[in-house]
Amino acid sequence: MSSTSNKNILNTPPTGGERGTVIKADKLTKRFGDFTAVDQISFEVNKGEIFGFLGANGAGKTTAMRMLCGLSLPTSGTGRVAGFDVYKENEKIKRNIGYMSQKFSLYEDLTVKENIRFYAGIYGKSDKFIKDKTEFILKQLHMENEADKLVKALPLGWRQKLAFSVAIFHEPQIVFLDEPTGGVDPVTRREFWSMIYQAAESGITIFVTTHYMDEAEYCSRVSIMVDGRIDALDTPSQLKKSYQAKSMDEVFLKLARKAARSESNPTKTA
């Protein structure tokens, strides 16, 4: 695809909305002893939406995400992901979500094809499905010639795009992206975001955490976590309006400054 079409896509984030709710959190809380990592967060994410989940380090993003992925049980509150309860149905949640972290999570000593086959395999996909879809994806990524190359031979940007394709290979309802663009150059980041848009267009809901505020602008809606709470939640343009800010960066700084326990403020950490 050409770079001009990328730009067009990125200027109009998918709104989702009318197609129903896929994540619903109500007063979701996680405590570790006396420490409240996530403090009664409530929000809804619509199908096909790109939901930006922002917050400084230590604000509770990862803990919240782990609860939604079925890796960690909440202390209180309710939550439903892909229509399943986060307390009782986390196995069903796991079947219906994809996950990608900053580390990309591909095996460097395996080839591109072997990585795809492995991850599709642990989701129990059939050989036929894997074969057909692998061909399709390699074509889409223009990586037909790299299919049998070891992942460690690929440039970082390619690995990242491959990792995203692998994360949505089993066609999940929601994909959780944990700082997916860390350490990647701006051009590749842009290309990566156009892949995210494509996935969202096809109906996959994107739940993404990021440190890059320009990426926050690409999201349909953004929530900003401060000290375990969600302090702001709206579309990027609405947020800029209400905080009288020119950019998401400014919005974020205004909110994060209040934080009592961010890493820049270690003395006040609970």
Partner: peptide, 14 residues
């Protein structure tokens, strides 16, 4: 270390 365990734990594999 590589973060692949995390991905597996998010998968339906027990």
């Amino acid at each position: 270390e590589m973060g692949t365990l995390e991905v597996m734990l998010v998968s339906p594999m027990k």
